[in-house]
Design a binder for these strands. Structure first.
Lengths: 165, 165
DNA sequence: GTTGGATTGCTTAGCGGTGAGGTACTTTTT
DNA sequence: AAAAAGTACCTCACCGCTAAGCAATCCAAC
């Protein structure tokens, strides 16, 4: 029983036995899983005319609850992308009528982003499909193993400073 | 003790209590970790004039062992990117003299990619720094926890068909 | 042999991201 | 009150990847 990363570690052990390559057992696998899963999720998004970036914004707005209004800065922190990326995401979504931008009343620099009725309808339509895909992707692990995994990932995230808010 | 994804799950539980969003506990965290870790690794690569894509090719060639020769197709499978991406990676590396391309003697379609002496020297210079960074990134978990995590990630990868070779 | 399907690597348009920088506004300092 | 520092969002040049398509070659079945 060996996956791609096991082969990689074998190769390193042969070529550079002087180095401790064990961290690759975690980080290499995280990278590969991320790519594999993203490719899988992409198909579901595409089936609804979306991509990961657009889905991410719509989902973030939707789960914020009524009145479905956030700032670009909040979206930026949630998505962990730069401000330029958020501007462009919002440009695309606004052009499709899925979100609307309006100036903040209290801060002359600020902008309100609001989910339109169409945007809300779309994300609520995509969500069940998306969750079914995620469920399927993880179906190789029992619920218990999934829980263990989530716990370890949370530990690591917290150690890297990924606190909520 | 709650990370960003815990907040997300709380929001979904409030807004869409009808949906089972538990898979996000794993997949959402995988995505965030991947972004955080990539950003961290990027700094080490940049300090040596590299990016993730270039490092990946050089490392794959290096660990393949003498004579440090692979095909674009093998690099493609290892990196999980499209053939166009590999072509472009090789263009960049070749322009810098870090790899060399030559036609295959046995297959008219094929190309040999070889690590140049400069390429080998560079990757051997970067590797210790890179591993130190990876080690530091994981230092929030004990060795045992890292091992558990690697095991769970391998289980998931195998269930998704990521066999070695 | 010939034919038809794989396979190999390259090309290119388009997309989404970064990073540096800019403008406008707010907050803090003095 | 004025100056300085910080914040919010946008702009734009550049970069790497995908996806679709192409030409060349291999190989397996007839």
């Amino acid at each position: 029983m060996a996956d791609h990363v096991d082969r990689v570690l074998e190769q390193w052990a042969r070529e550079r036995p002087d180095l401790d390559t064990s961290p690759m057992g975690v980080i290499g696998r995280l990278g590969r899983l991320s790519r594999l899963i993203d490719a899988e999720l992409r198909r579901t998004f595409a089936a609804h005319g979306l991509d990961h970036a657009s889905f991410d914004v719509l989902a973030t707005m939707r789960r914020s609850g009524p009145p479905y209004r956030l700032n670009p800065a909040e979206l930026m922190r949630s998505a962990m992308v730069t401000s330029g990326a958020i501007t462009q995401r919002l440009d695309r979504l606004e052009a499709r009528g899925l979100v609307a931008r309006s100036p903040s009343e209290t801060d002359g620099r600020g902008v309100h982003v609001t989910l339109t009725e169409e945007g809300r309808a779309l994300i609520d339509r995509v969500l069940p499909d998306h969750l079914a895909t995620e469920h399927r992707v993880l179906s190789g692990l029992t619920d218990n193993r999934q829980g263990e995994l989530a716990g370890l990932l949370r530990e690591l995230l917290e150690s890297l400073g990924d606190r909520g808010h």
